[in-house]
Structures are given as structure tokens and as C-alpha cells.
Amino acid sequence: MSFSSFSEFIQMGEHGLFVWSCYGLTLVVLVMNILRPLQLQRRLIQEKRRAMAQEDALSQAPGSNQQVDK
């Protein structure tokens, strides 16, 4: 451990703001790059499920002559 107290660790000499902003930026960039594709993927799957449910409802409706190819 190269610091003797927690406040010393936060202050980083007089460079606390520089060091911590770099690590903060890194965290933001890395996390965004993981969350963004996951969010897109979830949205795609939700839309597809909704469309599939709609197709099922249409093909099962009585008197419906709409055929949905499976």
C-alpha cells in the first residue's frame, strides 16, 4: 500500500482530480460499451416476440382467413 490514510488516497498528492477523472471516464466508456448492445438486443427480442404473438393471434382467430406462414 503506497498511502497511509484514506484521505491521502483520495487526494493523490495534489493530483486527485486528474487521476480520479481518468478512472471515472474509463469506467463510463467500458460500462457503456457493454450496456448499449445488451439494451439493443433486449429491444430486438421484445419486438420480435410481440410480432410473433400477433401472428399467432391472427392465425388462431375464428373466421379469419389470414394465413401466416410459419
Binding site: 503506497s2 488516497f9 493523490m12 498528492g13 495534489e14 493530483h15 481518468c22 478512472y23 467500458l30
Partner: peptide
Amino acid sequence: ALVVGAVWGLAFAPPDYQQGNSARIMYVH
């Protein structure tokens, strides 16, 4: 790897003899 590396670089690695603690930016830059 990222957690071990960041904690090591931020808290345990020695400061640079010229740049002091700002050298810890190296571990992400």
C-alpha cells in the same frame, strides 16, 4: 483483470519519482 489491475495501480503501485501520483493515469491511458 480490470479490478485487480485498477486497485493495484491506484493503491499499491509506487508513485513515480518525478510525476508523483499522476503517473497512476498510466494504468488506464
